[in-house]
Design a protein around this nucleic acid. Structure first.
Length: 705
DNA sequence: GTTTAGGGTTGG
């Protein structure tokens, strides 16, 4: 039925009512509804317009279905539900009883870490944990004391859901359970844990490595595709796997009789170079029986062992060669040792597939060269792998893993070939621009292709103080709750005006989003510790608006986000329509009419070899090249200095004793019109990545596009 | 409403 309100009553009502509220009306009159034919509602309506008419609005607070206990507040002998970030885990292993056992350790914002043991008969009921940092939700676990500390064990009605722990990614529950509870509060709980974990320095580092980064004696986790397998004896299975990168060390070759191999008995010479043979022992052998070639796997706590190793089942005529690296998944479950199949839709597998497909496409294109390649393997044999003068021991080595040609070309040939080609070169870096390395970060608008420097701190500070110098009051938008905020104790004891969304506050999401007016830059930064999204605003013509777009429009943790001046048309609206659960830079930018700028790396290198020198850009594949995203470099001093160290290590200063290493790079040449309308040939580094040999320079896994 | 395990590597 339609209810018609007028005057101040209508105004008061519309400001306080929310969808879902219970409304009681008194003093109304019944009238004929003029819209009954159109809206097909009740033929009468209720008109609340007299002097005695009034409306009561009462909010029905939703009783949450599940309560979650913080890990610090666990009491012995209770059954609870908890959320946590995984800091240690073992894949499920067989117990002496009837069940498999998952062993894990989790932590949360209360900074307590707690051990959990999950017993389940079926593997699919166990938590699907892929890596440290994953988020886990446990329902109906009981607390108990062991060794003077409280721990968790599953109990009747137990259920578990896990999520990827990466900030900004989709919140996709991992479970094999058909029916499980999941609502918007779960989504925000996961987001809150992700954001909290991202700011924790004490989180254990990921042991994931690509093959190209593995060094002798390393323990590491590997994401890979299974190409073939062979059962060697009851305690050992051979897995032949690849991840698209080439290990910097000669690998153990295992010649197995073709009739015991499941999958192709051999591969092209180029592909064989990338394949790692992994020996899986003891308790893990059972799990390898269900593996099929083509499966995507993660292997936990693999060991790379150099030198002569006895390989079980191999004929004595083929002793493992000295100094050849072999990979072992030893028996036991210490340090989470084990393996699992990764689902095809997981983001890590998607990334891996892109790299592997690139290799396969490339191999197809170059199949006409394969004959030459196979008959002269020494022509390929590891110039960039073994030569000592090529690279200082602890620095990085380059492996453009996707060559379009097998032999490096000389720079003079590259120049002669003109635009429209892909070249593999062996060069030294003579110089680079910008000289000031912090300037290699830029802001880029993908819509208008404009590029600008990242504003320095002083400029942003000025914009903040300018904005706070115009204390013109402004009408807060109708959707906002406004007030003054006291900052956490510190040197600054000022208050500033804040605005929050009524809707979010009513949903209890009080830390999701805050608008601040009249603050300094420093205060805005301080607030990021308590609020996930901090938006600085000012008053203009009585309305709330953003600061000049040279300043960040949003602070999220240590990250700052900028809008494009050309392409943005700013109107502050509620950054959530119906159904928007997630509040992040994308949803906020969209709501405010902002074209989000992205951080990019841009550098110019002067390359040289014996024949010529050539200016090339590093832009499109720069993140792959450094193994660092530009966004991380912008937010994280450590990541930024890592990039600087890499640049300095491939181009040591003139006066230093450091040798200038030879780099294998992939270059693409293309034609571009210069300012005078003349066609000009440009060059860019592509597909080339730094494969590091020291852990602090390690390049993470990253797609080449 | 039971039991299992209770993180911590040198091993082919």
């Amino acid at each position: 039925i339609n209810v018609i309100l007028q005057g101040t009553l209508a105004q008061d009502f519309s400001q306080s009512v929310h969808q879902g509220d219970v409304v009681a009306a008194s003093g109304f009159t019944v009238g004929k509804s003029p819209t009954r034919l159109r809206d097909k509602l009740h033929p009468f309506n209720l008109q609340l317009s007299g002097d005695h008419a009034c409306v009561f609005v009462s909010r029905v607070t939703k009783v949450p279905k599940y309560m979650y206990v913080r890990l610090k507040d666990l009491k012995p002998g209770t059954v609870v539900n908890v959320y946590g970030v995984v800091v240690f885990f073992k894949q499920p292993f067989r117990t002496r009883g009837t069940d498999f056992c998952s062993s894990l350790k989790i932590t949360d914002q209360s900074n307590q870490s707690v051990f959990c043991t999950i017993f389940c008969e079926k593997l699919e009921d166990h938590p699907k944990i892929f890596q440290i940092g994953d988020i886990i939700r446990l329902h109906r676990v009981k607390t108990q004391f062991f060794n003077d500390s409280i721990m968790l064990v599953n109990t009747f009605g137990f259920s578990v859901v896990t999520f990827d722990g990466g900030e900004g990614g989709p919140v996709e529950p991992r479970t094999s359970c058909q029916k499980f509870h999941f609502d918007e509060t779960d989504g925000s709980t996961v987001e809150e844990l992700r954001a909290w974990a991202a700011g924790q320095v004490k989180m254990p580092p990921s042991p994931l490595m690509r093959l190209s980064a593995v060094q002798p004696t390393n323990y590491f986790d590997l994401t890979c595709q299974l190409l073939a397998k062979a059962s060697i004896d009851s305690t050992c299975t051979l897995l032949r796997v690849w991840d698209g990168s080439r290990c910097a060390h000669t690998l153990l070759k295992v010649n197995i009789s073709p009739d015991i191999i499941e999958g192709p008995p051999s591969f092209s010479a180029r592909k064989e170079e990338l394949i790692a043979n992994i020996l899986v022992y003891d308790n893990h052998v059972e799990f390898t029986r269900q593996l099929k070639p083509g499966d995507f796997l993660r292997l936990y706590n693999l060991r790379a062992i150099p030198g002569s190793q006895k390989v079980p089942g191999l004929p004595s005529s083929q002793p493992a060669e000295l100094h050849h690296l072999s990979f072992h998944l030893h028996g036991g479950t210490a340090y989470g040792r084990g393996l699992r199949i990764l689902p095809e839709n997981s983001s890590d597998v998607q990334e891996l597939k892109r790299v592997l497909d690139l290799f396969e496409d490339d191999e197809l294109n170059n199949s006409y060269l394969m004959d030459t390649w196979s008959t002269t393997p020494e022509s390929s044999a590891g110039e960039n792998r073994t030569s000592k003068n090529l690279w200082p021991a602890a620095a990085a080595a380059f492996h453009p893993e996707v060559f379009t040609k097998q032999h490096p070309e000389q720079l003079s040939e590259v120049r002669r070939a003109g635009p429209g080609g892909v070249h593999h070169v062996r060069v030294q870096l003579r110089s680079y621009e910008p000289q000031k390395l912090h300037q290699l970060l830029k802001l880029y608008c993908s819509k208008c292709s404009s590029m600008q420097d990242v504003p320095d701190e002083e400029l942003v500070e000025n914009l903040f103080s300018q904005a706070s110098r115009s204390p013109v009051p402004c009408d807060p938008p109708p959707w906002a709750l406004s007030g003054m905020a006291r900052l956490p104790p510190g040197p600054l004891k000022r208050t500033l005006s804040i605005h929050m969304s009524k809707q979010l506050v009513s949903e209890g999401k009080t830390t999701q989003l805050i608008f601040i007016m009249g603050s300094s830059l420093e205060e805005a930064i301080q607030l990021t510790s308590g609020y996930q999204n901090v938006v600085p605003v000012m008053s203009s013509g009585g309305h709330m608006t953003l600061l000049d777009l040279s300043a960040p429009f949003l602070f999220r943790g240590r990250k700052r986000f900028y809008g494009c001046r050309n392409c943005s048309d700013v109107v502050i609206k509620e950054p959530w329509g119906n159904g928007v659960e997630l509040i992040n830079e994308k949803t906020i930018a969209e709501a405010f009419g902002i074209q989000l700028m992205q951080f990019v790396f841009l550098m110019k290198f002067k390359l040289q070899d014996a024949t010529d020198s050539l200016d090339v850009f590093l832009f499109r594949d720069a993140e792959l090249f450094f193994g660092v995203t530009a966004e991380d470099a912008a937010a994280n001093q450590e990541a930024q200095s890592r990039v600087c160290r890499m640049v300095e290590s491939i181009c040591p200063p003139e006066d230093s004793t450091g040798e200038r290493p030879w780099l294998h790079l992939c270059l693409v040449s293309y034609s571009r019109e210069d300012d005078f309308g003349q066609n000009q040939t440009c060059y860019q580094i592509c597909h080339s990545a730094i494969a590091s040999s020291s852990p602090d320079l390690q390049a993470p896994f990253h797609p080449p596009f």
